[in-house]
Design a binder for these strands. Structure first.
Length: 106
DNA sequence: GTGCTGACACAGG
DNA sequence: ACCTGTGCCAGCA
């Protein structure tokens, strides 16, 4: 059995924690974990992202992944993620950014 | 060890 | 809006 690297598991775990309608940047995930960097998170997502809501992990610019634009936009529209409509729709990261707070209602 | 590449981020022009 | 350079960390030839 091949277990994923523990770091990869942590990254994927965070990706699954992100609630619908919200997003985290690669850098945010790395900072949330307290280790690695945005590039490491990106690499993990590239390799194992297929098992988690990868569309909720985005670039700081809010630009959807090349080739997955249509797929990602469909998800965002379905989940109500703040989007910047226009010629090239991108995520309104400033509004959609999730702080990582798991407590839904205190 | 060296150099390039990558689902990144930020500052400048 | 676009491209360039620099910093960052890890993987690979």
């Amino acid at each position: 059995m091949s277990e994923l690297p523990e770091y990869a598991e942590r990254v994927l775990a965070v990706a699954e924690l992100i609630p619908p309608g919200r997003v985290m940047t690669y850098g945010d995930v790395a900072e949330w974990l307290g280790e690695g960097g945005p590039r490491q998170v990106g690499r993990v997502m590239a390799l194992y992202g297929g098992a988690v809501p990868w569309w909720r992990v985005v670039r700081a610019d809010g630009v959807p992944l090349p080739g997955h634009e249509r797929r990602a936009l469909a998800r965002y529209r379905a989940e109500g993620t703040p989007l910047r409509e226009g010629d090239a729709p991108r995520i309104a990261v400033a509004r959609a950014r999730w702080d990582g707070d798991v407590t839904p209602h205190t």
